[in-house]
């Protein structure tokens, strides 16, 4: 705990110091030419813009209710004066021209006061140079202006997750019954790994409330973190387990008699020494109450009732 004490003076001093320094914000909007001028050269873009939510005049503060194209791309007068020279005087949402922070800043200039975006600064996406336009298209009329449907959209960057989702034991993500954003706060938040809860267990309990307990006989690693035994995105092993039973259980439970005994190919249905600690569901053939039990005596303590 003492190691965190250094943060205590750092925060107020930082705030105080930065509070007296001048702000870096700039503003001003002159040279608006109007969207008809833009349309003259950029007909395709203009038509796709018309399909988007941005083109709805009824939405307070929408580009359509302000300066249309120039709400996002900036005043076009200089660009027009230079006969439409690429990049002159206007803002282009291209990774080759504008960096991620500049692009996001453009979007946030209108969307910052949206309650779903108040934690954008905390997001790993922001610090990894992901900008709004990586996922959203400012033109066209897709749902939430997304460039693709989940999970394909997320898998473009999170390639290793794609492989997990394809495994035999998985949450119904590829079936479309669960979306990445059901668990993750893509716009940032206080949870670990951008999950929507303060802890992993809180997130899992939101669908698996029966695991919340509290139980008389709990199983500490389970109570501390579901991800001790389970992996969220997919596994080769039943129940999204990180490895196969009995080895998974034995890596912690190595006592005398059966918890520490070696179970091999010979203890399966087809072996010469069948054991109900190995065939079928191995440990789970007897110890099903591994998330907790309220059974009496050793029946509860060993999670068999």
């Amino acid at each position: 705990m003492r190691r965190f004490l250094f943060f205590l003076p750092v925060l107020p001093i930082s705030m105080l110091l930065w509070g007296v320094l001048p702000s870096g914000e700039v503003g001003g909007s002159e040279g608006i030419v109007g969207s008809e001028i833009c349309k003259g050269c950029h007909e395709d873009h203009y038509q796709s813009y018309l399909k988007s939510t941005h083109a709805k005049k009824g939405i307070p503060g929408s580009p359509a209710s302000k300066d249309a194209c120039e709400s996002c791309h900036g005043p076009g007068a200089a660009h027009v004066e230079k006969s439409g020279e690429r990049g002159v005087g206007i803002f282009i949402f291209s990774k080759r021209i504008a960096d991620a922070k500049s692009k996001s800043a453009k979007c946030l200039s209108c969307h910052e006061e949206n309650r779903d975006l108040s934690s954008w600064d905390l997001s790993k996406h922001k610090s990894s140079d992901v900008s709004c336009d990586n996922c959203h298209t400012v033109h066209s009329g897709t749902r939430k202006n997304l460039k693709a449907a989940q999970p394909d959209l997320c898998n473009i960057c999170h390639r290793s997750i794609r492989m997990q989702q394809n495994k035999t034991s998985h949450h119904p993500i590829r079936e479309g019954k669960l979306k990445c954003t059901d668990c993750h706060d893509h716009h940032g938040g206080f949870g670990p790994r951008m999950v929507k809860s303060k802890t992993f267990n809180d997130l899992c309990y939101s669908c698996h409330a029966e695991k919340r307990g509290p139980y008389m006989w709990d199983h500490p690693p389970v109570d501390e973190n579901c991800l001790t035994c389970h992996t969220a995105h997919g596994s080769n092993h039943a129940k999204l387990l990180v490895s196969k039973i009995p080895e998974l259980c034995q890596s912690c439970h190595d006592w005398t008699q059966h918890p520490g005994s070696i179970y091999t190919n010979q203890n399966t249905f087809q072996g010469n020494a069948r054991s109900n600690r190995m065939f079928a569901r191995a440990c789970l053939n007897c110890h099903s109450a591994i998330h907790g039990s309220n059974a009496p005596s050793a029946r509860g303590k060993t999670h068999v009732r």
């Binding site: 930065w18 029966e210 059974a295």
Partner: peptide
């Protein structure tokens, strides 16, 4: 014989969040 099934439970959470923009593109959350 009896196997104990998951018990009923009640849970609540009260959460306060705040952010304050500071100069120099800084934010305290």
């Amino acid at each position: 014989d009896t196997y104990t099934l998951p018990p009923n439970n009640d849970s609540y959470k009260l959460d306060f969040q705040g952010t304050l923009k500071l100069p120099l593109n800084s934010k305290f959350s």
